[in-house]
Design a protein around this nucleic acid. Structure first.
Lengths: 249, 249
DNA sequence: AAGTGGTCTAGACCACTAC
DNA sequence: TAGTGGTCTAGACCACTTA
């Protein structure tokens, strides 16, 4: 279907960048499904009319961005971001001794509502747009540590129901992926200190006004499309947030 | 000086990884100075006895790790991590509207002391080891926003003086680099909520017990050598911490 | 004009996986 | 055994910088 990419770099962008965009476009078109292998490198190189080296450079970047996953001898696969292997990429709360554990979620509320100003701004919604807002209480090591208030646009999640959220088998992001075809491939998180209001004090079993960590996260899909706005509040008495981490090996 | 790298991958590691290690070794040996250009790619390829493609793959990784910086047409340079261009890699506090600004530091205290348990653990020091501890108050947009309590081992910073810290022309990390040859190339940060003690309340002009953000950072040099332990406390009423940020483009 | 890194090719061979 | 990605080569040409 897709034509050979022009060699003449008419737009001045490198060939491998054009190939990368073409691969991203094919991904967005749904031609290759989540978790499945994409065609082998030689075939893709031929399809896009470039050398294997150039094709590999494009794929390299997509692998670096966790959009594709390579397995030597098996093939190159469309990443499933909600997979367990990627879980701790998005879940960055650990016990203060460094131990990571999977949280147990409990749905506290679910409703359809008009987006407030901040959600509208973050999710790029027009005035009066509707969102689903649901609240999750997360338990780690048998203690209530964190409350997520999650906001997703109705336009993208048409028909989302409380039962769907409550009875999801995996993570929220795997629900987005499997039921709505929406892939979270990146996030931006800002962090502040806040204090517990009456609701959070009850949920987290702490006194009102206790200092909590507030994580404000916007999640994106392929075309930098914002798909979820989430505010998490964490009792950091025994847990902490893993922030920036860069290091050479 | 350095010999050609064996082609036979005797250790089973890829050639480009061996080249990368050789380049890192040459960096650590001091043969190439901070901020200066390393030899051109063709020369390095010849020196290590590999093709340019292989040499480039090794350099690619070092560039990705911010240890080297490439400038097309000029050369490849040993990164100076304290440079302004990298400042916001390590300084991740921004105003809530997203505006970044350089902080104005004010030295509040400086002393030589025995490392406490946590500093000893993080900095891998023996019992009774000495550290320098100094406290910096940071002002952003004319308001006192953040207090850094910084702890560095005397063994690495022998002779560090209060005047040296107070009168440094640039950042603390550029002081480490220029006066002690210590390069911060990576950090690990954990974040919690805390409350203001009497000192911090005074410095930050907030009531005692105000909820603050606490950032606990361990900074590393080349061989994963920990060189600085820092606890920052931030008034996040108008500012926030930029956490994880990954996104495709 | 000369020198640098940036891109691209058209292969070769190796390591790993599946059958 | 066949097919996959991983590594490596020995160049070519382009874009940018410096002088």
């Amino acid at each position: 279907m897709s034509a050979t990419i022009s060699h003449l770099s008419p737009s001045g962008t490198p060939l491998y960048q054009q190939v990368k965009r073409a691969v991203l476009g094919t991904l967005a078109s749904g031609e290759w499904n989540q978790g499945e292998a994409i065609p082998p490198e030689k075939m893709l190189a031929q399809r896009f009319g470039v050398s294997i080296g150039t094709l590999r450079k494009a794929i390299d970047e997509l692998v670096l961005e966790n959009i594709l996953i390579r397995h030597q001898g098996r093939g190159t696969f469309v990443a499933i971001h909600a997979h367990n292997q990627h879980f701790f990429r998005y879940f960055r709360i650990v016990r203060q001794d460094g131990v990571k554990t999977y949280p147990t979620p409990q749905l506290l509320s679910f409703r359809r509502m008009r987006a407030n100003g901040e959600a509208r701004e973050k999710l790029l919604l027009g005035p009066g747009a509707y969102v689903f807002e649901f609240v999750n209480l997360l338990t780690l090591h048998d203690s209530q540590v964190m409350v997520d208030t999650i906001c997703v646009p109705e336009a993208l999640f048409s028909g989302l129901s409380e039962e769907q959220v409550r009875n999801r088998p995996g993570t929220v992001y795997s629900l987005y992926q499997e039921d709505f075809g929406i892939n979270v491939i990146g996030t931006v998180e800002n962090v502040r200190a806040c204090t517990a209001d009456a609701d959070h004090a009850g949920w987290l079993h702490v006194p009102r006004e206790t200092a909590l960590l507030e994580i404000r996260r916007l999640a994106f899909s392929y075309n930098q499309q914002p798909v979820e706005w989430r505010v998490s509040r964490v009792n950091t008495e025994h847990y902490e947030y893993i922030g920036q981490e860069h290091q050479s090996h």
